[in-house]
């Protein structure tokens, strides 16, 4: 899950080397915290969060198979 989010984020930003994803494991859910360079924030969020929504949709689709709820947070 973590690696998938990394691939997606790195594809979108100008500074892929600054992309960092950390996992916080909960009981029923997995929280993925995505960090990017400050200049790249817009590239992963988008107008009215459109890009962030698309990223979450794809990650969620992958999570369905693992039967776990995945939450993507951009920090």
């Amino acid at each position: 899950m973590k690696e998938l989010l990394e691939v997606l984020a790195k594809a979108l930003v100008d500074q892929p080397e600054a992309v960092e994803v950390s996992e916080v494991e909960g009981e029923k859910s997995l929280i993925l915290e995505l960090k990017v360079a400050p200049e790249d924030m817009g590239k992963v969020i988008g107008k009215q969060g459109r890009i962030a929504k698309a990223v979450r949709t794809v990650v969620k689709a992958a999570a369905v198979r693992e039967g776990k709820k995945v939450i993507v947070e951009i920090i």
Binding site: L8, A11, L12, D14, K43, R50, I51, K53, A54, V55, T57, V58, A61, A62, V64, R65
Partner: peptide
């Protein structure tokens, strides 16, 4: 099926991301 999603929303999301990444 998991790549299509409900009413194609996953496929559309993936398409949107690929568009942005490739045209960047």
């Amino acid at each position: 099926g998991i790549l299509i999603g409900r009413r194609g929303q996953t496929l559309d999301a993936l398409q949107y991301i690929v568009n942005l990444a490739v045209n960047k």
